[in-house]
Design a protein around this nucleic acid. Structure first.
Length: 767
DNA sequence: GACAGTGAAATTTTT
DNA sequence: TTTCACTGTC
């Protein structure tokens, strides 16, 4: 496509951002201001101006965003397929596979997730309980987000706990012994390699002339350090972000990165994109009413390009069954009028909230898809298969080893496992240091297992023997397909990647026998995992077998080599949430608020806007502001219609809890919003509150509402309750903002009720 | 070393 | 309500 075509559709600021050059650039892009369009157009533009696409590095935070960016850029200029468009973590992984030995890694490393981190920590510090381990794993992750090492002086800023450095240190040493990495390492190890090896830094500076980062407000300190060291004197750096949409500080995102960008990159220019093309004005209005309550922001006002629009609707419901029913009904009603299901997204704060929605949608036969929280890779059987694969790739992986050495049961219990690992560490765990900071890891747990010096009970020894046979058979199966028997080297890795891409591009049917899928099938059968899981539980067994088969199927594009396996690992570790096939079927989207970042929908329902849930109870200060930004993000996903639902009671872990509307809801003006259902008596929207405060009289609306309730339930009123029978109201009063009554029944039982909460079981008998 | 039974805790957000 | 860790027995 010609540049005059795609530049024509941009507004002046967008155009300026696309064509800007010569100094670093910070683009402050409000929600819906077309920032992805700006980045993708910029990529196309740069290529057209003669920039080698291979020298462009564009970084995003999620795989989904990266894929979308690549697709859209390629549509503008097909050369964009040669640009490096990746997530931060996949870039780190790519870099480390090339320079593994400079980072003290096996080039065939795999990535430990939080769960694996926990296993490893509990091994290095067995005195810790499960909960303590989980706590320290969080701290370690956080420390790595801030680029802090165990010996760093500033480590105390993560936690005052004096033992922390010690646990961290031991964990880190042991992790290096395994040759694997955790998520934090994917950022911090490249920094280390670049710092220690100026010649690699020079290579990288030469390779990447343009670096662009999307969602810059969510970058952490380590990612900022990485950016600084990746950018040479000649590199053009362009970052895009929105401080109002920073929602990840809980995991180390540092808004300071965007606020201080101009200080850190000298001469940086700033372009603001404030025209919103996504939402109708009525939606943008309440977004602004909410977010302006945050003190800690640069401050910008979005200008709605789409005027008018239906007012958003606040919906007051009595419990979450009503809430799910409401969602289902409104979606069905719209469907009947020709609105497709895919126009809708139902948003919630925590994943647990999706469950009741799913049940309701199944009952009402509404097709839906749940984004994120796909627990596929968390399933036991899947983790087991992955552990076998990981061990094939990296025989030093002790976490995977202890996961599967006795699965299926081979009489190798905990104590035997400890023995094996200790033996392997003491006898085989050597690290050889080569010139130029290079490190080579030697020996492996599997080697140690076959050593005669290892003393174990006869039963365990026999079990170990059969385990070894299985592993060796699998390892040699992959080796036969390797052109070069050496470990995964850069070249092989590149070749494998090219093969995957080729396979994706060509529509040629491939022979399954030659793909990684057939290898994984082999792993499932020869390891005994297939039989183990299918016989263990007759009912769930088939499903588990299916899940394992599905894992195998998802590897069908990968070549049956070690490099192919390594690539497949990157794919599953770095893309766990989005693996669900993007099918084109018409379905409602169920999604957490966090996961909606970067998405948009014509019609949005935000559910559970209640105190204690959203915002969560323990949030205050800057954390509360972050929750508010999350609400802002949710609202601004909307193109046309927005519904905000609140309930007055909710089942929480089996118990029924009384809820009241979120304070965020009260930040909206009454005349910006329509109300559906009965508003709790003491709940006021922002302007109603002002009215009330400025007047010494009780506002009319309150008086009416209160009077109505009091009239209905005044003392002496006869009532009937499903469980307690007939009785009389003794007293009418308020509990917090809820109207309550105290009643005495004929049976002698005295009870307190909130009529609003038990509409179905409690009724008034007319005299 | 395997496994059943008991008691208690737990529920954020994610690359 | 569900899940998970721990205990005691075979």
């Amino acid at each position: 496509m010609q540049s005059d075509n795609y530049l024509n559709v941009l507004n002046p600021e967008q155009c300026q951002a696309v064509m800007h050059e010569g100094s670093p650039l910070l683009i402050l892009a409000g929600a819906g201001s077309g920032k992805t369009r700006v980045i993708t157009t910029k990529i196309a533009w740069l290529i057209e101006q003669g920039t080698d696409p291979r020298s462009i590095l564009a970084v995003t935070f999620t795989k989904k965003a990266a894929n979308e960016m690549r697709e859209r850029a390629c549509r503008l200029n097909e050369q964009a397929q040669f640009a490096q468009i990746r997530t931060f973590h996949s870039f780190g992984s790519w870099f480390l596979r090339i320079y593994a030995e400079y980072a003290g890694l096996a080039p065939n490393f795999t990535i430990y997730d939080d769960d694996d981190m926990l296993t490893l920590l509990s091994k290095t510090s067995p005195e810790l309980t499960h909960n303590q381990c989980a706590h320290y794993v969080r701290l370690i992750s956080r420390a790595k987000d801030y680029c802090l090492l165990p010996e760093s002086e500033n480590l105390s800023q993560i936690d005052e706990d004096l033992c922390f450095a010690d646990y961290y240190q031991k964990y880190e040493e042991r992790l290096r012994e395994t040759g694997n990495v955790d998520f934090g390492d994917l950022i911090s190890l490249p920094i280390k390699v670049l710092k220690e090896n100026p010649e690699i830094q020079a290579q990288v500076h030469h390779r990447f002339r343009v670096i662009m980062i999307d969602e810059y407000q969510d970058s952490n300190v380590a990612q900022f350090e990485l950016l600084k060291i990746l950018a040479g004197a000649e590199t053009y750096v362009c970052v895009v972000g929105d401080d109002d949409q920073s929602i990840y500080s809980f995991r180390g995102a540092e808004v300071q990165n965007i606020l201080t960008f101009q200080e850190n990159f000298k001469g940086a220019e700033l372009i603001k994109l404030e025209r919103n093309y996504r939402s109708v004005a009525s939606v943008l209005k309440i977004a602004d009413e909410v977010v302006k309550n945050n003190k800690d922001r640069l401050g910008k006002t979005l200008i709605a390009e789409r005027s008018g629009g239906k007012k958003p609707v606040a919906v007051f419901l009595s419990n979450q069954d009503d809430e799910t029913a409401f969602c289902a009904e409104i979606i069905k009603a719209a469907y009947a009028k020709g609105c497709p299901y895919s126009d809708w997204a139902v948003l919630y704060r925590t994943n647990a909230q999706s469950l009741s929605l799913e049940t309701e949608f199944i009952n009402k036969k509404i097709p839906y898809k749940v984004v994120g929280s796909l627990k596929f890779y968390d399933r036991e059987e899947i983790k087991d298969v992955i552990a076998y694969l990981s061990l094939v790739l990296n025989p030093r992986d002790e976490v995977s080893f202890s996961r599967v050495v006795n699965k299926p049961l081979r009489s190798i219990g905990n104590s035997s496992q400890q023995k094996i690992i200790e033996f392997a560490r003491s006898t085989y765990g050597t690290i050889e240091i080569l010139p130029e900071n290079r490190v080579v890891l030697k020996g492996s747990i599997l080697e140690a297992c076959s050593d005669n010096a290892l003393s174990l009970p006869a039963k365990a020894k026999k079990g170990l023997q059969s385990f070894l046979e299985i592993m060796n058979a699998l390892i040699s199966e992959l080796k036969n397909n390797e052109s070069d028997e050496a470990a995964v080297s850069k070249e092989i890795y590149d070749i494998a990647q090219a093969a995957v891409e080729e396979q994706l591009l060509s529509n040629v049917p491939f022979e399954k026998e030659k793909t990684l899928a057939s290898f994984i099938e082999k792993v499932i059968s020869t390891s005994g995992l297939g039989d183990f899981h299918s016989t263990k539980d007759e009912i769930a067994g088939t499903q588990r077998l299916n899940n394992m088969q599905e894992l195998a199927n998802s590897a069908v594009l990968y070549p049956k080599t070690k490099a192919g396996l390594a690539l497949f690992f990157d794919h599953i570790e770095l893309d766990r949430a989005v693996t669900q096939a993007e099918d084109s079927s018409d379905a409602v989207t169920l999604i957490t608020l966090h996961n909606t970042k970067g998405l948009e929908f014509p019609r949005v329902i935000i559910t559970g806007i209640e105190k204690g849930i959203f915002p969560r109870e323990d949030k205050k200060g800057s954390e509360l502001e972050e929750e508010r930004r999350l609400f802002y993000v949710g609202i601004t996903r909307t193109r046309d219609e927005l519904y905000l639902t609140t309930t007055s009671s909710r089942r929480l872990y089996g118990r029924v809890e009384w809820m009241s509307p979120s304070p965020f809801l009260a930040e909206i003006n009454r005349n910006s919003i329509d109300v559906l259902g009965r508003k709790p008596a003491r709940f006021y929207f922002a302007d109603e509150k002002q009215q009330k405060n400025s007047s010494k009289y009780i506002s009319t609306s309150e008086k009416t509402e209160h009077d109505l309730l009091y009239e209905h339930w005044k003392p002496g009123t006869k009532i009937y309750h499903d469980d307690f029978g007939y009785g009389l109201v003794c007293k009418a009063f308020y509990i917090k903002s809820d109207f309550a009554i105290f009643a005495a029944f004929e049976s002698g039982i005295k009870k307190q009720f909130i009529p609003e909460h038990c509409k179905s079981t409690l009724m008034r008998i007319k005299n």
